Computed example of a mutant assay.
Amino acid sequence: MKPWVLGLTGGIGSGKSAVAEEFGCLGVHWVDADHAARWVVEPGKPALGLIAERFGETVLAADGSLDRAVLRDLVFRDPEQRKWLEQLLHPLIRQEVAEHLARATSPYAIMVSPLLVESGQYRQVDRVLVVDVPEALQLERVVRRDQSSEKQIRAILKAQASREERLRHADDVLVNDLDMAWLKSEVERLHNFYLTLRGGQE
């Protein structure tokens, strides 16, 4: 039987990766759309050539890899360019993620995506788990982790789907506001529940 797919999402600093890793420790196959986004532009991949052709060599680092910061600056300023880039990359990322999920041997597999709701990717999964965290804690965690200013983080929060919007699409919510031991036990509880589901539905 083909594994069903759980979409895992949450705002910046919510602890999505930690949750995915805990599921991984339980033998669940998972893939992160952010990682896939990096794989599709690796040197030697056709997408990188097309990006360099369009934006010029300035988007390439000295070692021939993509200079993400330069590219981000270019596309943030110009909605047309951003649209072009998204049209190039989104199908490739989707394909990469699908291929990874297809290799899963666990009863269900997980697609981790920060933009599951915003990008409409939630339509490709059978069930949605939202890792939720109070905004104050989110800010505190990210400032500590990225050494970014609170202002920068608030800008990112604004660009991501609002908490309400994310929670509206959730089948399950994991509130990650305590310690790792709590997180572990919550993941185990959800995992045992997921093993009882057929096709991700109750």
Rank of each mutant, 00 (worst) to 15 (best):
residue 1 M to Q: 13
residue 1 M to D: 14
residue 5 V to N: 02
residue 5 V to G: 02
residue 10 G to R: 13
residue 10 G to N: 13
residue 11 G to S: 14
residue 11 G to K: 08
residue 13 G to F: 14
residue 13 G to L: 12
residue 14 S to F: 12
residue 17 S to W: 06
residue 19 V to W: 04
residue 21 E to D: 10
residue 23 F to K: 12
residue 25 C to M: 07
residue 27 G to I: 08
residue 28 V to H: 07
residue 28 V to S: 04
residue 31 V to P: 01
residue 32 D to P: 05
residue 32 D to W: 06
residue 33 A to G: 10
residue 35 H to V: 14
residue 35 H to D: 12
residue 37 A to D: 07
residue 38 R to K: 14
residue 39 W to K: 13
residue 39 W to T: 15
residue 40 V to K: 05
residue 43 P to R: 11
residue 49 G to Q: 13
residue 50 L to W: 09
residue 52 A to W: 02
residue 56 G to C: 03
residue 56 G to M: 05
residue 57 E to G: 03
residue 57 E to M: 00
residue 59 V to N: 00
residue 59 V to Y: 00
residue 64 G to P: 06
residue 67 D to Y: 02
residue 68 R to N: 05
residue 71 L to Y: 01
residue 72 R to W: 05
residue 73 D to L: 04
residue 74 L to C: 04
residue 76 F to S: 13
residue 77 R to L: 03
residue 82 R to S: 05
residue 83 K to W: 02
residue 84 W to H: 10
residue 86 E to Y: 05
residue 88 L to N: 11
residue 89 L to S: 06
residue 90 H to K: 03
residue 90 H to P: 10
residue 91 P to G: 06
residue 94 R to V: 03
residue 97 V to Y: 11
residue 98 A to T: 15
residue 99 E to K: 07
residue 103 R to C: 08
residue 105 T to R: 12
residue 111 M to G: 06
residue 112 V to A: 03
residue 116 L to E: 08
residue 117 V to Y: 03
residue 118 E to F: 00
residue 118 E to K: 08
residue 118 E to H: 01
residue 119 S to Y: 09
residue 120 G to Y: 06
residue 122 Y to K: 15
residue 126 D to T: 08
residue 128 V to P: 09
residue 130 V to H: 07
residue 133 V to I: 13
residue 133 V to M: 09
residue 138 Q to R: 14
residue 139 L to W: 08
residue 140 E to H: 04
residue 142 V to W: 07
residue 144 R to I: 04
residue 144 R to D: 13
residue 150 E to W: 00
residue 151 K to R: 13
residue 153 I to F: 01
residue 153 I to L: 12
residue 153 I to M: 09
residue 153 I to E: 12
residue 154 R to C: 01
residue 156 I to K: 03
residue 159 A to C: 07
residue 160 Q to G: 05
residue 161 A to M: 04
residue 166 R to E: 06
residue 167 L to M: 07
residue 167 L to H: 14
residue 174 L to K: 14
residue 180 M to L: 13
residue 182 W to D: 15
residue 182 W to C: 03
residue 191 H to L: 04
residue 195 L to M: 11
residue 198 R to C: 01
residue 202 E to D: 08
